[in-house]
Amino acid sequence: MSSPLEQFQIEPIVPFDVAGVNLAYTNSALWMTLASLGAGALLVASARDGKLVPGRLQSIGELMYEFIATMVRDNVGNAGKKYFPFFFTLFSFVLFGNLFGLIPGGFTFTSHIAVTFGMALTIFVVITIIGIAKHGTHFFALFFPSGAPLVTAPVLIPIEIISYMARPISLSIRLFANMTVGHIILKIFAGFVISLGAFLLVPGIVPFAILVGLVGLEIFIAALHAYIFTILSCIYLNDAIHLH
């Protein structure tokens, strides 16, 4: 039986290098493409008619639109309006990446720290730049809560800086770890099904039943972590725009 970690193995499909840097088109990139194409096709089809009374397809797009619009409005306020398309794209990208990863034989690009950290770090850097552009040096007041006694500064400021710097790390590890662990568990239970006899009533049916439940749980976790990733990004943006 193959290792449960084998599913995370990256295989090059179209290898190429730019100035000695390996930028091969891999199975990870392929599933990124498929997830984006799937989400894009669904959403384009959903937005096509723009009917007064939406059908099922249009409702999917509108529900996602309203969901993210409400999230951005509630967490960032009116200043967040212009970042709405970004958050919508981020949510769709992570959500469909997680969901497409659950297709048997598929590849979960969100279970790779390089991808999640790439997203989290980019968001972190851009949000920090937005904050500095908006507030100038006053932005660094973020590291010292207003109203705290000045004596506490030597302790508070390093803590605040560390907690701020830890944001992209916690954001990326949360998604990566959840996806990885979920898929490892699925793989292990799937292995039990095969090794105990998949189509014998007992005992193969037991891990099979558990596996069915776990897939449902993983679908929920896929949606939940897309939501968490997006809402935390919103909250970080809000901190940068409105400070404390």
Partner: peptide
């Protein structure tokens, strides 16, 4: 594979962003 993953993340995310913000979100 770090560089490749991040490179394709940016490329695909950018295209996805462009499609959603031009073709989907205004209509919705």
């Amino acid at each position: 594979w770090f560089a490749s993953q991040i490179f394709w993340l940016f490329v695909i995310f950018a295209i996805f962003y462009f499609v959603l913000s031009k073709l989907v979100l205004p209509k919705l």
